[in-house]
Simulated assay, not measured.
Amino acid sequence: MTTAVAFTSCSKDEESSSSKLQVKLMDAPGDFQSVFLAVQKIEVHLKEETNPDGWKLLPFQAQTINVLEYVNGRSALLVDTDFEPGDLKEIRLILGPDSYVIGKDGQRYDLKTPSGQSSGVKLKLEKAAVQERATFQLLLDFDVAKSIVERGSWRPGNDKKERYLLKPVIRVVAQDLRAGLRGTVTPAAARPQVLAIRSSVTVADTFSTAADAAGAYQLSGLPSGTYRVEFFPTVTAPTGQPAYKNVVKSNISVVNDQVTDLGSTSLTQ
Rank of each mutant, 00 (worst) to 15 (best):
D53L: 14
S119E: 11
V229E: 08
Q22C: 10
Q258D: 08
I197Y: 05
T268W: 01
D27I: 06
T260D: 05
A179V: 04
V172I: 05
V101K: 03
G106D: 14
K12V: 10
K161E: 12
A76G: 02
L95Y: 02
R151D: 04
E230T: 11
V121A: 02
R133C: 14
T186D: 00
I170L: 06
L88I: 01
R171N: 04
L222Y: 09
L68A: 11
A28G: 03
L139V: 15
G215P: 06
L222F: 09
A38D: 15
F207W: 08
L111Y: 02
I42H: 06
D159P: 06
E43Y: 10
P59E: 14
A243R: 15
P29V: 06
G225E: 12
G106W: 11
I42L: 09
R191T: 14
A179K: 08
A134W: 00
G116Q: 13
R198C: 12
D261W: 10
L77P: 09
S220H: 02
L111W: 10
G225S: 12
E90N: 12
A210V: 06
G157L: 10
T186Q: 02
F207Y: 12
V39D: 06
A145F: 01
S34P: 02
F136N: 03
S17A: 15
F142Q: 07
T3V: 15
E162M: 12
T268M: 05
E48Q: 14
K124C: 02
P223E: 03
S119F: 07
K20C: 02
V149K: 15
E69R: 13
P59N: 15
Q22Y: 00
L123Q: 09
V79H: 04
F7T: 11
F7S: 12
Q218P: 05
L93I: 00
V248L: 11
S115I: 04
R228I: 11
Q218W: 03
T81A: 14
A213M: 13
G180S: 05
Q117E: 09
T8A: 15
G54I: 00
V173Q: 09
P97Y: 10
V255Y: 04
N251C: 01
Y70P: 05
